[in-house]
Design a protein around this nucleic acid. Structure first.
Length: 419
RNA sequence: GUGGAUGUAGUUCAGUGGUAGAGCGCUAGUUUGUGGUACUAGUUGUCGUGGGUUCGAGUCCCAUCAUCCACCCCA
């Protein structure tokens, strides 16, 4: 019986890997332009980091973590997200003694134990950005603009950016009280889930899809109505930045994000996919997180992008249809077994010149070699037989046009664009 | 965690109680040193797994596992 990959995992194999490379190289290019530095943290951390960082009332921590004891009886958790690890590493390496702000980016696998479905996996990959040490609204603006730039430069269409402010430890408790006061009158009409949310996290009732809950909450107070002076002004400045930078957005007063650490600016982005899992990225400010996990009081902001969902969206939008190979492939064919050594030596020479070159390793006959060259989309075929070896000539066939020219070694290198 | 659907060749699927099939792919051949098309041949199956009904089960029943889809949540 063949062994399958564990539930919720997937392999990136064969031509699919090209899609990931396209996305990844675009991302690293952009990071260089925006001057963010890569950070690589372990994929497992002390469980406590996520309990304190992400928050133990969140679904992620509550029921989706891969947690186990290692052989030294330490409680270990496979990271469900990237922000807490970056914050931890920043503190551990005294990033606050370096020049601020610290601007990081990361890519890598994340782990959440939930039922897999379209666009949702137990091991999935995120790309994320974290900036620590600045509370300027211009930073919120830059981060939002950067996130949108990533999607637009990948060619993704139908983007929809939703933003909201979720307040700060000063104004959110006050708002919560006002909200609870309002909900108290309608408590009996709420769905069971929301009745539970009432005590634990009443803001989450905004997320409920239940029509009755929606009616109730829609007529209730919004967090944006109860922001403190500071948060209100910050949010206004962020919106000004977006207008100035021509970043389109929708104000979604009902958006509440699933991680406890968010403060002030919160955002989420979809790309017009039908049905579920349309969210391809999201994030926000987390001004209390660094302090919460034992660091100095420093603000932060970041976002994460779900790479599987980006791939899915780009596939649906046909953005991989016209993949252009950056390098031409050259296949060196041998006429008979006697010529194999010469083809191998030629391939080695071509590779030393930076030319992509392949030769037969399946003992195929000449015709078979051409068929193979065709299947791997070789752009050129050079045929080597006794005549060619004796006369030092190289027949170069263009597989797209079918034309074949005979050239000298120097002409060959020139035609293939060798260095 | 809740609900629904589906498991047959590498893949997409047909097979409606009586000997396991097709398309695509893959490998090779169609006599001279040149691909794509065409033709020919070959190729892989514990029919997801375990029970049950039956003279006989890929087909009917039960269980189990896996996958997919939606809810939930999120990226």
């Amino acid at each position: 019986m063949a062994i399958k990959g564990p539930k919720g995992t997937h392999d990136i194999i064969f031509d699919d890997i090209n899609k990931w490379h396209i996305i990844e190289s675009k991302l690293t290019d952009l990071m260089e332009v925006y001057d963010y530095q890569e950070i690589r943290t372990p994929i497992f951390e002390s469980t406590e980091l996520f309990l304190r960082g992400v928050g133990d009332t969140t679904d992620i921590v509550d029921k989706e973590m891969y947690t186990f004891l290692d052989k030294g009886d330490r409680s270990i958790t496979l990271r469900p997200e990237g922000t807490a690890s970056v914050a931890r590493a920043f503190i551990e390496h005294s990033g606050y003694n370096e020049v601020l702000p610290s601007k990081f980016y990361y890519t890598g696998p994340m782990f959440r134990y939930s039922r897999p479905q379209t666009g949702r996996f137990r091991q999935f990959h995120q790309f994320g950005v974290e900036v620590i040490g600045s509370m300027s609204p211009y930073l919120d603006g830059e981060v939002l603009e950067l996130m949108m730039k990533i999607f637009t430069s990948l060619g993704i269409k139908n983007l929809n950016l939703e933003i909201n402010s979720v307040g700060c430890p000063k104004c959110r408790p006050i708002h919560k009280d006002i909200l609870k006061e309002y909900l108290k009158k309608n408590y009996e009409s709420l769905c069971p889930t929301c009745q539970g949310r009432y005590e634990k996290n009443p803001l989450r009732i905004f997320d409920c899809k239940n029509i009755k809950c929606q009616e109730i909450i829609n007529n209730g107070p919004y967090i944006t109505d109860n922001l403190c002076e500071e948060c209100d002004q910050h949010f206004e400045e962020v919106k000004k930045y977006l207008a100035m930078s021509k970043v389109d957005y929708v104000l979604n007063k009902k958006m509440v994000r699933g991680l406890d650490y968010y403060t002030k600016t919160a955002f989420e982005i979809t790309a017009g996919r039908d049905g579920a899992q349309s969210s391809i990225g999201g994030g926000g400010r987390y001004d209390g997180l660094i302090e919460e996990i034992g660091g100095p009081s420093l603000p932060g902001i970041g976002f994460a992008i779900g790479l599987e969902r980006v791939v899915l969206t780009m596939e649906e939008q046909g953005l991989f249809d016209n993949l252009v190979k950056s390098k031409k492939k050259t296949y060196v064919a041998n006429v008979s077994e006697n010529n194999i050594d010469e083809t191998v030596l030629l391939v080695q020479k071509l590779r030393n010149k930076g030319i992509v070159a392949i030769h037969d390793i399946m003992m195929r006959k000449l015709k078979g070699q051409f068929k193979y060259a065709n299947k791997i989309n070789a752009d050129y075929v050079i045929t080597i037989g006794d005549d060619e070896i004796n006369n030092k000539i190289y027949p170069l066939k263009n597989m797209n046009t079918g034309e074949q020219i005979v050239c000298s070694y120097d002409e060959l290198i020139k035609n293939l664009g060798g260095e």
